Simulated assay, not measured.
Amino acid sequence: MESVLQSFFGAVPQATAIWLIILLALAVAVAAASLPRGVRVGGIPDEENRFAETLEAAAAEAAETAGRRRVEWAAAQDAVDGAWTAYEQASETARRIGSATAFPLMSRRRKPGENVDRQRYLHRVATELCRSQDLSIAQLNDVYAHRGWNPRLHPVQQEAELRNAVREHRFAAYRKAVEKERAAWRGAEAAAETVRGLRAEAATARLRGPEAETTDQQWWAEQWAPAELPVAA
């Protein structure tokens, strides 16, 4: 047997033997490529498909997150509308009650204990407004501490001051609602962009695997076509 092989390789030029080995390797590669997708020689899984499936799963989770962010943004928009409506109502009430103070009040000697009654009135009304969220806790603390508040004013004047405070509180709440809405919009846009990016990468991964493999096979077929093999001497 060894003598036969020695005679064979002695008769065939070395270059021809190299071409035969290349053709044999190409035949093995084509046979492996003809296997169903997801199957490789030796049971190795299709890495391209696995990567694409991972991206698709991540895109599905990101889509759920984007949906929640969209709902949060819609709720934030509703909160902005509600805060603006509350501010407009507070502003109108403050304007209407403030017009009542345009006329001077009659000056008279106060009854004994009247200042105490006025202070109680201020505290009671301020507490009710805070319970209805028309005043903040900080504003209520200022009222009880008499920081910027005169408890001896006439109830009409106190009511006007309280309504101005309500208007300020409602406008501050509106500004906070606008900030939250903008943050929710940025979050929704970022989540949507993540979904778009993951879906694009998954689609590219799906196309890249089979396309790259076909291109490689075509290139090898063009490079090592039997018609272009050198003629053995």
Rank of each mutant, 00 (worst) to 15 (best):
P13H: 07
R50V: 03
Q223G: 05
Q218V: 11
E64S: 10
I22Y: 10
F8A: 14
S7M: 12
A74K: 12
N115K: 06
A58I: 00
G197A: 14
Q6N: 13
R167P: 05
P45K: 00
A190D: 13
W19D: 08
E222P: 00
F103A: 15
A172S: 13
I137F: 14
E88S: 07
A76P: 07
Q217E: 10
R131A: 13
R170D: 05
N164A: 13
A102G: 15
T54M: 09
E61M: 07
A138W: 07
A90F: 04
Y87E: 13
L207E: 15
S132E: 14
R69I: 03
G38D: 03
V125I: 14
R108M: 05
N49G: 09
R131M: 09
R175E: 15
A33I: 00
A25E: 10
A52Q: 04
R69Y: 04
R131Y: 04
E168V: 09
L162W: 01
E201Q: 15
E211Y: 05
T204G: 13
W73C: 01
G42L: 06
E193K: 14
E72V: 01
V41M: 12
V4I: 15
R50I: 07
R50S: 08
I137N: 14
P45L: 06
V80D: 05
A66H: 02
L5Y: 10
A25H: 07
Q158R: 04
R110V: 00
W220E: 12
N141A: 14
T204H: 12
S34E: 04
P155Q: 09
V116Q: 13
Y144R: 14
L153M: 10
A102F: 05
W219N: 09
Y87I: 01
Q14T: 12
A74I: 03
I44K: 15
R124K: 10
A191G: 04
E61S: 11
G38I: 01
A102E: 15
E56R: 14
W219E: 11
A203F: 04
W224C: 09
A57L: 12
R170C: 07
A225Y: 02
A79W: 04
I21T: 12
Q77K: 13
E159R: 13
A188M: 13
L129A: 02
R70D: 14
A190Y: 00
E228C: 01
W19L: 10
V231N: 07
R175A: 10
G187H: 08
G187L: 07
R70W: 04
Q217N: 09
E159S: 14
D81K: 13
V116T: 11
R40V: 00
A31V: 08
E64H: 08
E211N: 08
